[in-house]
Amino acid sequence: MSAFYSVLKRELRSYFASPLAYIILVVFQVISARFFFLYLQGFLQFQLDPSYQLQTGDLNLNNLVILPYFGTISIVLLLIVPLITMRLIADEKKNYTAELLFTSPIHIRTIVLGKFAAALILLIMMLLLSSVNVFVLMVHGNPDLGAVLSGYTGLFLLGASFLSIGIFASSLTDNQLIAAVISFGVLLVLWLVGALSDAESSILGYLSVINHYEDFGKGIVDLKDVVYYVSLIFLGLFLTYSALESERWR
């Protein structure tokens, strides 16, 4: 078995050997489903309103249910991703297994990528679970499928960026709690930084993780947003690699 795949497999096994992964999946699904139900209820009530008949094109399932639902998911991701990534590298240091990994004939990048891939799989599982709610809509309604797919693409990129930043935080310490706090802090700053500036074209606005998400929800996949997220993912992974590499030189 290739080293990458063994690292990935061990990491996944470790997630599911403890209750952590199950708790994360359940909490994520409960919270997002609860909000989904709220939005749907709001939409149904609104349909009974006489003014609904005078609606302009904007008041549909996509804008009133799916878009806010995805917004909720992105916030839940902000809260949950630090819990997914906190142990990835911090735990290796704490259990002295880092010494095994770094004296084995494998590249540091293989270790980092294997761990990232395991966390990605957990993210995909979360997103798939959440899509059940959207499928229910499909059965009874007629939402714009393209917007749903692009929304999920955006959520996946957003979540993956969060994960790469979380891994970096985890590589800085041997304490899981500290790793979680660091990654939550960094993610929150990246999230809120857009609010500090009014102009959308400003640098701060560009740095904001959530500004780049907005178009995906509307069904627009803009290359510049994809580039933003992919760069963020690479940056996080590269910083993790550098942190692990430089630690040995100290």
């Binding site: 063994s6 096994r13 050997a17 880092a98 010494e99 095994l100």
Partner: peptide, 25 residues
């Protein structure tokens, strides 16, 4: 290499662990 503190994954069985080590080695 056996470091001062044995580098063990506490959530794996002995077999799984040795299989993992064999893979990365």
């Amino acid at each position: 290499y056996l470091p001062e503190n044995p580098p063990l994954y506490n959530d794996m069985t002995v077999m799984e662990y040795l299989s993992f080590v064999a893979d990365i080695k």
